[in-house]
Design a protein around this nucleic acid. Structure first.
Length: 267
DNA sequence: GCGATCCTGGCC
DNA sequence: GGCCAGGATCGC
């Protein structure tokens, strides 16, 4: 469910965690823990102080002073909640981190497409998921040419599929891919190899603007997205094509994902 | 590169 | 009952 802007909002909403001490960690029997085990995560985190929250693509990283980090991906249905009062545990709760002051962080993920993993080095390069990610959309150390070269490595990918490929630019999902292509006035079916440099640059500029808009409007709440303190987004009011099939906006399916676009304006 | 697949819930 | 969903991986 959450794409980059939503994960960014979740990260910001969880700032109150910084400085808290982990007292205890609980996992459900089917928690989507990858590459490690719930027992190891518990052992690593217990007694640690949360020092920072970071985001890489759609991954949220909760750092401690060790420098161990908990790496969370929310998949299609994951939701994090920072709780200061006792509330009953909803169905499909898979992890709860209890802090020494009685507050806690709860992860609920009905479909379990998300992942819980660890990183034990400062740059996250030891984590198999983080290692695969491409550029951060606003990385100031990368030039337009760097981004273009990333796209050019996949000449046969349709532009829509290229945007969804996390190894090129990290963090774009189905909503923002459709919106960015509309903003760039490019047909999602066009292949990277049939696209010139000026068009790829246009696409990158559109991606940046679209993600920034998503953050400015605090994310897209179509059904149930909320940040860590329960705040919903309002970017859904500003979507131009996603979910808006009508006489001029077409819905097609690419790589098993729906794509909405305006075939007259996007070429 | 593409389609099937992992999973649950909501809606028609 | 069937279809759809904000994601990513796996096998061909």
């Amino acid at each position: 469910m959450p794409e980059l802007p939503e994960v960014e909002m979740i990260k910001r909403s969880l700032a109150p965690l910084v400085g808290k001490t982990v007292a205890r960690v609980w996992f459900s029997r089917v928690a989507p823990v990858e590459t490690t085990t719930p027992a190891k995560i518990t052992r690593f985190l217990r007694g640690q102080i949360i020092t920072a929250l970071a985001r890489r693509g759609k991954y949220l990283i909760i750092r401690t002073d060790r420098p161990i980090g908990l790496v969370l991906h929310l998949g299609m249905s994951g939701k994090l909640s920072f709780l200061e009062t006792l509330t009953p545990q909803p169905n499909h709760t898979h992890m709860e981190i209890f802090f020494s002051d009685g507050s806690r962080l709860r992860l609920v993920d009905p479909r379990r497409f998300g992942t819980i993993s660890l990183t034990v080095c400062p740059d996250g390069s030891d984590n198999a998921f983080l290692r695969k990610l491409g550029f951060e959309y606003n990385d100031p150390t990368r030039t337009i040419e760097d981004f273009t070269a990333q796209f050019r490595r996949h000449p046969n990918l349709a532009l829509k599929a290229a945007l969804l490929h996390q190894g090129i630019i990290a963090g774009i999902g189905n909503i923002y891919a459709c919106e960015a292509l509309f903003r760039a006035r490019l047909d999602p079916r066009r292949r990277v190899g049939e696209t010139n440099d000026a068009e790829l640059k246009r696409l990158l500029v559109a991606v940046r603007k679209t993600l920034e808009l998503g953050i400015r409007w605090q994310g897209t709440t179509l059904r149930d997205y909320q940040d860590g303190r329960g705040t919903k987004g309002s970017m859904q009011k500003h979507l131009k094509v996603y979910g808006r099939a009508n006489r001029s906006i077409l819905r097609i399916v690419q790589n098993n994902r729906a794509t909405w676009f305006h075939p007259i304006l996007q070429r």
